[in-house]
Design a binder for these strands. Structure first.
Lengths: 118, 118
DNA sequence: CAGCATCCCCACTGATACTG
DNA sequence: CAGTATCAGTGGGGATGCTG
């Protein structure tokens, strides 16, 4: 996300921080605990290394996550949520909940349609 | 937003529903009560009529908002949040809260920097 | 394994003009 | 006033290969 230099609206600011396609999924995974890039890549189906690292970097810049790096081989880095990240996760959690409701309703409709009840 | 036809992840589904640049602001305004397009346009600084109507249409499609239209002149239409929309608003509200915190912290840093304390 | 650089496409956005 | 159509710019995202 290209961030603007001046935000007058707090909602636009936060929205831009998590607009990226994979950001909610990354936060969702990190909520489970600190995680390395390779582990994240495994758990988020379809994400490329480039997009993962790009989004991680953007989240770092906004103070939503932080990382710990151990220099020397083998390389090992862990990303984890900051307090700000945990707060944003609450919003992500609601989004997840709404999504589940929608998918259940859709399935219910499909079910009813299959039975000729809709 | 170009919606996919198949969502296996509820989080991706909801995220795509509100990724549009102006969607959170529209929901924020509608939370205050039903509103006409022209009134929304006035209250959302910088939005064009095209983007407003486009996003309203997308939100309608996803069942986040609904509208009432009175045919005949002068034309009068009101958009309002559905139950689903009100639930998503809760997430938007958290985003707003996080944004306010960030802006306050930034101002605080600017303040301290001005005083030579940072 | 973590991270960066390049190239390319297309979806999102915006400006403008038009219709009922 | 609500809603649609067209055109053009841009930046987000994907594929791929390279480096420490």
């Amino acid at each position: 996300m290209k961030m603007r230099s001046d935000y007058t609206c707090p909602l636009e600011l936060t929205h831009d921080m998590i607009r990226g396609k994979w950001k909610p999924l990354i936060l969702w995974q990190l909520k489970k605990g600190a995680c390395s890039p390779s582990a994240l890549k495994k758990s988020i189906r379809g994400i490329s290394q480039k997009m993962l690292l790009q989004h991680l970097h953007e989240l770092l810049t906004c103070g939503v996550i932080k990382k710990t790096s151990s220099y020397g081989y083998p390389l090992k880095t862990d990303y984890f949520l900051t307090e700000r990240g945990k707060k944003i996760y609450e919003a992500v959690s609601i989004m997840q909940s709404v999504g589940i409701d929608m998918m259940l309703e859709d399935n219910r409709e499909d079910f009813l349609r299959d039975k000729g009840l809709l």
